[in-house]
Amino acid sequence: MLSKFRLALLATVITLSPAALATASAEPLKVIASFSIIGDFAKNVGGERVEVTTLVGPDGDAHVYEPKPADAVAMAGADVVLVNGLHFEGFLERLVETSGAKAQIVELTKGIEPLKMQEEHEAEGEAHEAEGEAHDAAAEEEEEEEGHHHGDTDPHAFQSIANAKIYVKNIADAFCAADAEGCDAYKANAEAYTQKLAAAEDEVKAAVASIPEDKRVIITSHDAFGYFEHEYGLTFLAPEGVSTEAEASAADVAALIRQVREDKASAIFVESITNARLAEQIATETGLKIGGTLYSDALSAADGPAPTYIDLMRNNIATIKGAILGS
């Protein structure tokens, strides 16, 4: 009983001030976060016990990131490396190898329910059929050249706050494994942050519920919001696939425009990490107005509207709701 009481007291103190419990003389845990959203999670869980280096920073695009020599040097000295996994960080394998990193590489999507990206091909097939196009050998070859991703798993699991809670738990577990002394602090921080996430999730659900069901189809640049769609009930259509690396083909865009008209999409949004031109083209052709900027794979800079993950989710749903209900 006494030990339970002590633990509870400890947790309360940590919740109020995580920094207070960090051992003054101890070296902070050196943590690499592969991109800005994970960096934010890591800081919330680690507090002042950790020193977080984020590779792909605010407004950066992890799909096409090319690591710098300095990243390899930082990786070599890291105690823990936190990554999304599910092939989100295409640069990671070679960076780990190049750096000779000895740290544990922690895939934070462990334990989430992955979503497959099969709709892309189905939609393409339908488009070809509708236009009576011959899907001949040459077309298949071209598709191969441009890199088709059959059976790909959508890596953007962090777009569901329910999944974000799993990321946070995985981070706490990783920090505990690397720094047993700080484990109680990490767990307490994770618990406190998870409560904040839960509150933000309630806001998102309430906002979606306030949008009429026949207005819940919207357009974005790339397929980054599958988990948001799955969890909260909006439908996102996008001309680009799960990666921003492969540009949308003319056929993709044409198929999307046709789909927009059929499904009566309510709004179109640009993404902070992608060029707005494609969204503007679709807006022009469909008569939809650009409803604002959504943050998909990266936080904004500190002076932007999404400097933290919770800000990002709040900004996105507010932007979506405002554009749909205001239209």
């Binding site: 090319e66 690591p67 710098k68 020599p69 300095a70 990243d71 390899a72 640069f91 070679r94 960076l95």
Partner: peptide
């Protein structure tokens, strides 16, 4: 390739490693 840097010549007996972001 795999790391973003450039390698250039610099005089007859040297090379220079260039990290434009450093």
């Amino acid at each position: 390739r795999g790391l973003q840097y450039f390698l250039g010549n610099y005089g007859p007996s040297a090379v220079v490693v260039i990290d434009p972001t450093a």
